[in-house]
């Protein structure tokens, strides 16, 4: 067993977990933050994307122990009273259909803005979404949402 401690959405959290526990399992099952989703569980779909030390990573492909001591932000940590501009943009632009991929899409989108700035063209957004799959295939409005949300961040 590993004794781990990390900061999740600004709060210090910890626990005893098996060493093989995935970060997404720790977030969902120990912390009960179920906004982060498990889609494919094979590192492809990006529904599980969270930020670890400011960078988007796939939490189904990271051990909780690997993130020991890190700062983690999940979809629940974005809103500050009001929706985060990227969340609002997904709402305004009909960027979600079934909504399953949305947490990962939004965490990927805010990471994209952190790295590349607020002025994102369609081609860049589509290329940067390489690691996020929408099974409703609703990419058109996701791209629109990200472009809109980025400009308002």
């Amino acid at each position: 067993m590993a004794s781990i401690s990390m900061t999740v959405n600004g709060k210090t959290v910890g626990g005893e977990v098996e060493d093989r526990t995935l970060l997404v399992e720790f977030i969902r099952e120990n912390l009960r933050l179920t906004g982060t989703h498990v889609g494919c569980d094979t590192s492809q779909c990006g529904a599980c994307v969270v930020h670890v030390d400011g960078k988007a990573v796939k939490s189904c492909t990271t051990l909780a122990a690997q993130a020991n001591g890190s700062e983690v932000t999940t979809i629940e940590g974005l809103a500050n009273g009001d929706l985060h501009p990227m969340q609002q943009a997904f709402k305004d632009n009909h960027g979600l259909q079934c909504g399953f991929c949305t947490p990962g899409m939004i965490m990927a989108a805010t990471d994209m803005v952190n790295r590349l700035g607020k002025d994102l063209d369609e081609k860049t957004i589509r290329t940067e979404l390489e690691g996020n799959i929408c099974r409703c295939t609703g990419y058109h409005n996701i791209v629109k949402s990200i472009q809109d949300g980025a400009s308002k961040m």
Binding site: S43, A56, V57, K58, T61, D111, E130, G131
Partner: peptide, 9 residues
Amino acid sequence: IGDPHVRHM
């Protein structure tokens, strides 16, 4: 290589 999230790790 891979995608942006994979490239961070």
